[in-house]
Amino acid sequence: MSAQPLISLRGIGKRFGAHQALRDIDLDVAPGSVLVLIGPSGSGKSTLIRCINGLVRPDEGSLTVAGKAVDIHKESAWQALRTEIGMVFQDYALFPHLSVLRNMTLTPQRRRKLPRAQAEEQARALLAKVGLAHKAEDYPSALSGGQQQRVAIVRALAMQPKAILFDEPTSALDPETITGVLDVMRDLAREGTTMVVVTHEMGFAREVADRVVFMADGQIVEQGPPGTFFAAPQHERTRAFLSNIRSFGAADHA
């Protein structure tokens, strides 16, 4: 990789009690690239993605974002970092007591100190972009799962982050609403948004990812560009995982 990575992890380890969730992870994410993390459940994907913004605090290792080292033992450092790295969750996690618009203006007003009018203007523009301008005044409970997830994505975007982390963004969705969410993510990738995506959507990975990383037992087993990764996986575990996914045809919607 030629350019300096936007996000760089070195020797990241995390232990939950007796369970070693992550072991000596090195990972680089180039600016403007899409990195897809795949692996069986319990492999540590979700833990790893949370180590990038400190929702799970790594025990050891180092993290560099945009050339700046993050003090992984300091909560304030994590809080500052989180305004620069957005995150989208499996269960959307919109604040149910706030309108769609308020969900999107809350942190820009509080953390980016945007004036209310400007924050709302930006929010409406983002909502329009994902086809939900008419839902601005509604409460989350009035939206379908797919609509809520699109709001969650633009809510993260409203902070103008340097990168966005996606933790299985389509796993909780009905099949018919998945497409809309994946379309939005595809658009973001096209616009050059740096993304780290944990997903089971192999179609999406094949089509959009710049690099695919396969994890098992808290370690990175294999990684590469999607073309070679899917065509010629090197490791036995990768092959087993991919053939499982294919035979179930599970999440191959895109």
Binding site: R50, L55, T83, I85, M87, A93, F95, H97, L106, T107
Partner: peptide
């Protein structure tokens, strides 16, 4: 826990999460 992670991921401090998100919901 999901809402807590979402609030934190947007850069809210634990205190702001409590005041802006958790407390109003808990009061309801």
């Amino acid at each position: 826990k999901g809402l807590r992670e979402a609030a934190f991921s947007l850069g809210l401090s634990p205190w702001r999460f409590f005041r802006l998100i958790a407390a109003p919901m808990a009061v309801r």
